[in-house]
């Protein structure tokens, strides 16, 4: 058990060499690797922290946007509801107006149709009555009837009011033409004379007459100047008849109308 000094020196040298080599191949690389990793982890942590902050900011922004979006949505919904209500009201109003107009039109159309039907009925009845009357009067048309007709016309002339007479006189004197007398059948000379005489007396002037035969004036007579006409035929009676036929108007005749007819 003694110290070999050569061994001691050699071991010191060995140890120094070992220190140098291990420093070079072990401690430095290992410590560097650890440091690098730590730096990397620190960098990653910092990065993560930064991302966290960023994410927080983004989340806040998103929440803010979400809130404002909700508000906008509510506002828009409210506006839309209000608009829809307005629009509905407008549509209702339009529909009501249109309905009223349509109903009015319908009423007008119905009225028009009623008038047109009435007119058609009246014309038909008139034609029928005319046909019947025409046939009856044709059958009865004798000289005596013509005389009667002439007498009736003369009576009617005499029954004219003073104003009417004056009007007739003015119309006759204002015109150069003679008075035209139209009748369904040709009048006899005696009848023509009687008519002229009664007119002369009525108007108190010398009248000139021209006579025309118009078969359409069944059972009637007409006296006309250029702008004045006196007629007597059965049309007036027919019109009165029309008034008292309820089916034609769809309404009851008034008492006044019945009275007029019967008279």
């Amino acid at each position: 058990m003694e110290i070999n000094w050569f061994t001691v020196v050699a071991q010191v040298i060995n140890f120094i060499i070992l220190v140098w080599l291990l420093k070079r191949f072990l401690y430095k690389p290992i410590l560097k690797a650890i440091e690098d990793r730590e730096n990397k982890i620190v960098a990653q942590l910092e990065d993560a922290e930064a991302k966290k902050v960023e994410a927080k900011a983004e989340r806040e922004e998103f929440q803010q946007k979400n809130t404002s979006f909700d508000e906008q949505k509510k506002e828009l919904l409210a506006n839309a509801t209000s608009d829809a209500a307005d629009h509905r009201q407008e549509l209702f109003d339009n529909a009501r107006t249109e309905a009223a107009q349509l109903s009015k039109k319908l009423a007008t159309a119905a009225e028009e149709q009623r008038h047109s039907e009435q007119k058609t009925h009246r014309q038909k009845i008139q034609q029928e009555v005319y046909g019947i009357a025409r046939k009856a009067l044709f059958d009865l048309a004798t000289v005596s009837l013509e005389e009667q007709l002439t007498q009736s016309f003369i009576k009617r002339l005499n029954a004219l009011t003073k104003a009417e007479v004056k009007q007739l006189k003015t119309a006759f004197t204002g015109s150069s033409r003679p008075l035209v007398v139209r009748s369904a059948v040709a009048l006899s000379e005696a009848q023509r004379q009687a008519l002229k005489q009664s007119l002369d007396e009525l108007l108190a002037i010398e009248t000139s007459l021209s006579f025309e035969v118009v078969p359409a004036l069944i059972g009637g007579m007409e006296l006309s100047t250029q702008d004045y006409k006196i007629a007597w035929n059965i049309s007036a009676y027919l019109r009165g008849f029309e008034k008292v036929v309820p089916a034609l108007n769809g309404q009851q005749p008034t008492n006044q109308e019945l009275k007029e007819y019967h008279v």
Binding site: N14, I17, L18, L21, L22, F25, P29, K32, A33, R37
Partner: peptide, 22 residues
């Protein structure tokens, strides 16, 4: 001693050759 030195250094070199920082 030399054997131990060799052992230590060779192990260190082999291991530290493939050091990773992951």
């Amino acid at each position: 001693t030399w054997g131990i030195m060799l052992l230590l250094i060779i192990s260190a070199v082999i291991i530290t050759r493939q050091l990773r920082t992951d």
